[in-house]
Simulated assay, not measured.
Amino acid sequence: MRKPLLRMTLRQLQVFEAVCETRSYSRAADVMALTQPAVSLQIRQLEELVGQPLFEYSGRKLYLTEAAEALQRAGQDIFGRLNSLDMQLSNLLGALHGQLRLGVETSAQYLAPHLFAIFKRQHPEVNVHLCVGNHAQMLKRLSENRDEIVLMSLVPPDRDLEFLPFLNNAIVAVAPPEHPLCQSKNLLLKDLESYPLLIRESGSSTRQACDDYFKQKRTHFTHVQEMTSLEALREGVIAGLGLALLPRLSIQRELGAGLLHELPVHELPLYRSWCAVHLRGRHLSPVAQAFFTFIREERALISALAERLSGQQSVQQA
Rank of each mutant, 00 (worst) to 15 (best):
A173R: 04
L197A: 07
V174T: 10
T206R: 05
M152K: 10
Y63I: 11
V277G: 03
H261D: 06
H179L: 08
N134L: 05
G59Y: 07
W274I: 02
P286H: 09
S310L: 12
A170P: 01
H97P: 02
L255T: 13
S107F: 05
G256C: 10
T219C: 15
I171A: 08
R81D: 07
H179N: 11
C131T: 09
D77P: 04
M87S: 15
R308V: 00
F214I: 04
Q88W: 10
P53S: 02
S285A: 14
S310A: 15
V19C: 09
H129R: 12
M138I: 12
S229L: 06
Q88K: 13
Q316A: 15
G133N: 07
V265W: 11
E21H: 12
K185Q: 03
R296K: 15
F214N: 06
F294K: 00
Q183S: 14
Q137C: 04
E226V: 13
Q137A: 10
P196D: 02
V19Y: 01
K215Q: 12
A239Q: 13
E235F: 08
G59I: 03
D212G: 09
L13M: 11
E307T: 06
A28Y: 00
H223G: 00
I302T: 04
N127Q: 09
A318K: 03
S202G: 08
P165F: 09
D160S: 14
A67C: 04
